[in-house]
């Protein structure tokens, strides 16, 4: 495992520190990705939870593409950051907790897509969403907020 991580850091994937401004650039992209992801989640979750009840659900669903795009930017920049110093990250308990929350958020997203998305698309304006959809929406907000906090704490736990 350690040999694999060391070879990762020596490959082109792990070259962030070798490039001038490489790491700050990755961090900036990571923050931009997280804002795009969170914005996409907020509009959909706000409708499902009844906070923005008059928002038409079907067109609001097109903001899932915003969330997915934000996740792709954050995940790609995150992989490069990880590969720049993998042994340091795998030894960091806050990083491991963050990855756990991301995996849970991924499962929650699958539950949303396969267990709630279809029925939500036919929700009338002002109508209350099903309770399983509300559970998913709360979970997504809680999990991603946790991911943001844990991500921000990584450098303080070493």
């Amino acid at each position: 495992m350690n040999d694999f991580l060391t070879s990762l850091s020596q490959s082109w994937l792990g070259s962030a520190y070798a490039v001038a401004w490489g790491f700050p650039l990755l961090e900036t992209l990571h923050f931009i990705g997280l804002c795009i992801l969170f914005g996409g989640l907020l509009i959909i979750d706000a409708r499902i939870l009844g906070f923005a009840r008059q928002l038409p659900m079907k067109p609001a669903m097109s903001f899932t593409s915003m969330a997915v795009a934000g996740f792709a930017i954050a995940a790609t920049s995150g992989i490069f950051m990880f590969c720049s110093d993998p042994l340091r990250y795998v030894a960091n308990p806050v990083f491991l907790a963050k990855i756990t929350l991301i995996l849970l958020a991924g499962l929650n997203a699958l539950w949303f897509w396969f267990g709630a998305h279809g029925r939500l698309a036919s929700l009338a304006d002002g109508e209350t969403a099903a309770s399983n959809a509300k559970t998913i929406a709360w979970a997504s907000l809680a999990l991603w907020t946790g991911v943001i906090v844990l991500g921000r704490l990584i450098p303080y736990v070493e």
Partner: peptide, 18 residues
């Protein structure tokens, strides 16, 4: 406080981008 600042950023910029 930095964590709160990051959450606030995600809310404000996220909705700004929406």
């Amino acid at each position: 406080i930095i964590s709160v600042h990051a959450i606030g950023m995600a809310i404000v910029v996220g909705i700004g981008l929406v």
